[in-house]
Simulated scan of single mutants.
Amino acid sequence: MEDHPGRIPIDQCHHGWLYRIYSRNLNLGVYRQEDHGFVGIRHKMGARYLFTEFHWDNGPPFGTANPLEALCECPILPIDECLERKSRTEFMDNVSLFEWIEEQGQKLGITPESC
């Protein structure tokens, strides 16, 4: 993945906002301030699931996401791939966030994941 000239710098990204991004696996992602990552829908080997890509400004090898446009604030909390159930070892997918990102992609005419 290469740098994108229209990238929004990390210090201008807003926690909880959906961004159109240029990255290896995501076209849309909700920015999570604590780790400078974008949570979005990834497609791999026939499966679709929430996945985090990190802001380009984090540097190699993990900084792969170039945010291009802030779209709207996300009403879903927490902004995590998975939610704890009863203990730190039991997790379930964050279905609400997945569905919201997918819905926003449909409204905007953007496929959430890079294929």
Rank of each mutant, 00 (worst) to 15 (best):
G46T: 13
D11P: 00
H36N: 07
E84M: 14
L77T: 14
R42W: 04
D3Y: 12
Y19I: 08
E90K: 14
L71C: 07
F91T: 14
H15R: 08
N66R: 09
T64H: 06
P78I: 06
G16E: 00
K107V: 13
G6H: 13
L97H: 00
G59Q: 11
M45N: 14
P5K: 14
G109A: 09
A47Q: 14
R42D: 00
E53R: 13
C115P: 04
L97E: 00
Q104K: 07
M92G: 09
P61L: 09
H55P: 02
K107M: 11
I8Q: 01
N27W: 06
H15T: 06
R48P: 03
I101Q: 04
Q12Y: 07
E2A: 15
H4K: 10
C72T: 11
V95R: 08
A65L: 08
G37C: 06
C115T: 12
W100C: 01
K86V: 10
E90T: 15
R48H: 02
P61K: 15
D93I: 10
R32V: 04
P67E: 02
I101R: 05
H43W: 14
M92Y: 01
G37K: 04
G16F: 11
D57R: 00
E34K: 15
D3G: 09
P60A: 15
G37T: 05
F98A: 10
P78A: 13
V95Q: 03
R32F: 00
H36Y: 06
G40P: 05
C72H: 03
H55K: 03
F54G: 00
W100I: 02
C13D: 00
E2P: 14
T89K: 13
R48W: 07
G59P: 04
T89Q: 07
N27R: 15
E113G: 03
G37H: 02
H14P: 00
I21V: 15
Q106R: 14
N25K: 14
L83F: 03
R85C: 07
P78L: 10
F98I: 01
I79M: 01
S114C: 12
P5H: 12
E53S: 10
L18M: 08
N58M: 05
A70F: 03
E99V: 09
